[in-house]
């Protein structure tokens, strides 16, 4: 009797332990690079290059000082934020009505057009954009950069929101229609408020993808509007490869993205998986 209980206990314990090990096998490779970057960002150049590697030894803020004082990263933060926020807001303004219409009236051609915009290789737009914006003397202005980033945000908004609107029950809208309320009122006063979770998803993703974008800034921005990814890249390409400072810069740029993800975790997961699941 005791023996079987013990066996049972042991087996459930070992099963749990096995599961724990498996989960660890997933987590370590995922998380390790981050911890390692974080650790390196507090190390001196000498400690980073020492072999065998030593962890958690030096505690210097020197790298961060260089990034923020000498390289003026706050300026790039500001640039990235202006571009990300503006592009996201405009994407919402353009994308929400479009998504609603696509969802309600099954406008599959429009949906496909937006899908193509989502899947287009950005590189095929760079060249004409560059020519267009340079004719208009808009290179290195926020306008060009924001316009280009809307093309990142808009498909995300339409893509996630058209699926979301489809899941909103029709009954509420129909009863309002019977009462003679116009459709645009219904959209603003009824549909949008109950779609807040979807909007949060779209907003977060649109901002994240704009924040991380490198290719568009690479061609459309220069000194005045340089965004963070470009600044980090330039930091490496120039002169001494100062690994500590580069790691500090990398940590600085991914931290806002990570914080945003932590706050809106549920929404981000939904947004990223919505494409693959049935609408």
């Amino acid at each position: 009797m005791d023996k079987t209980r013990l066996y049972y206990k042991l087996s459930s314990f070992s099963k749990g332990f096995l599961f724990f090990l498996l989960v660890l096998c997933i987590l370590i490779p995922v998380v390790f690079p981050f911890l390692w970057m974080l650790d390196a960002s507090f190390k001196t150049q000498k400690d980073i290059t020492s072999i065998p590697p030593r962890f958690l030894i030096s505690r210097t803020m020197e790298n961060y000082r260089r990034v923020f004082e000498e390289q003026n990263f706050l300026r790039f933060f500001f640039n990235s934020a202006v571009v990300g926020v503006s592009a996201t807001l405009i994407s919402l303004a353009l994308g929400l009505p479009a998504a609603y219409s696509i969802a309600r009236y099954r406008q599959e051609t429009y949906r496909f057009t937006i899908l193509v915009a989502r899947l287009m290789p950005g590189i095929s737009l760079l060249l004409p954009w560059y020519l267009m914006f340079s004719r208009l003397e808009l290179i290195d202005t926020f306008i060009a950069l924001i316009l280009s980033h809307i093309l990142i945000g808009l498909p995300i908004v339409v893509w996630t929101m058209s699926s979301y609107f489809q899941s909103v029950p029709l009954e509420i809208e129909e009863s309002a229609l019977v009462d003679g309320v116009t459709r645009q009122r219904i959209f603003v006063n009824i549909v949008l408020p109950i779609s807040t979770p979807g909007i949060v998803t779209a907003t977060t993703l649109s901002f994240l993808f704009s924040w991380n974008n490198f290719m568009f800034s690479q061609v459309l921005s220069m000194e005045n509007t340089k965004t963070l990814p470009l600044a980090v890249y330039n930091f490496v390409s120039y002169a001494e490869v100062d690994w500590g400072a580069v790691m500090a810069a990398s940590i600085a740029i991914i931290t806002p993205a990570i914080i945003l993800t932590m706050i809106f975790q549920q929404y981000v997961v939904k947004g990223l998986t919505v494409g693959a699941l049935k609408g």
Binding site: F78, V82, S86, F142, I143, I146
Partner: peptide
């Protein structure tokens, strides 16, 4: 608003 802001900030 944002376009105006952008222009101002960009020092266009």
């Amino acid at each position: 608003c944002f376009l105006v802001l952008a222009i101002l900030a960009g020092g266009g």
